[in-house]
Design a protein around this nucleic acid. Structure first.
Length: 212
DNA sequence: CAATAGATCATCT
DNA sequence: GATGATCTATTGC
């Protein structure tokens, strides 16, 4: 089903395509029903799969429902933000700067807003496709080390708005034996309001983190 | 290397 | 009409 990746730099790509399927399982909907901060931390090391492409999540940001003026949900329910107020485990995809799509995972419970922005992945599967879609000839990490880059590489867009992430073509999976790593916490990137809140979570020292 | 301009449009004032 | 949870290329040191 998934195409083989092109020759890789073994120091950067940690798992083979075969291991991806033998050693992972989709997160259940209940697994997403947690506070956004907790989910943001918990999604690190999990695998985002869209059709023939996949990558491991190494950077996330939590957006809260209350008093978080940086969150899209802070201005209330609109046609764009309604999914954030709904049940957890759904995709919130929005369009920004006239050209980029960003993927969020809805957290908390039905009626309570909260979501997690996926900011960076380590590419795992379908690398040739990613290179083509990104029109990129640089490093492997450069395919997906940014929120707009990873959606382009995995072909995720507003067509996936509201889609559930526990089954179907867009899923988040966890390793049966999770990798061990150190988690770092920093302020979120690219926002003006609440700019100093420590809600960005990273796999400390990973080479595929986004750039400032 | 750091700083900055330009691309480009859905959303909300 | 302004803004923005971004990315890339280019400029300048």
């Amino acid at each position: 089903m998934l195409p083989d990746a092109r020759p890789r730099d073994p120091s950067r790509i940690s798992w083979s395509r075969r291991q991806l399927f033998l050693q992972s399982e989709p997160l259940s909907l209940e697994a997403f029903a947690r506070p956004a901060v907790e989910l943001a931390r918990g999604l690190l090391g999990c695998i985002l799969v869209h059709k023939t492409t996949a990558g491991m999540i190494v950077e996330t940001e939590a957006y809260l429902g209350e008093n978080d003026l940086a969150a899209h949900s802070a201005r209330g329910r609109t046609s764009r933000t309604q999914v954030i107020f709904g049940p957890p485990g759904r995709a919130y995809v929005y369009f920004i700067y006239g050209m980029h799509e960003c993927l969020n995972v809805v957290a908390d419970s039905d009626g309570i807003p909260g979501c997690v922005l996926i900011r960076a992945l380590e590419p795992l599967c379908g690398l040739p496709e990613m290179y083509r879609r990104r029109d990129w000839r640089g490093s492997i990490c450069g395919l997906t080390n940014g929120p707009g880059k990873l959606t382009q590489a995995l072909a995720i867009g507003r067509e996936q708005y509201g889609q559930r992430l526990d089954k179907g073509s867009l899923t988040i999976r966890r390793w049966r034996t999770p990798p061990s790593f150190e988690v770092g916490v920093t302020p979120r990137i690219g926002i003006r309001q609440c700019a100093d809140w420590p809600l960005r979570f990273i796999w400390a020292g990973h080479s595929c983190l986004s750039k400032r």
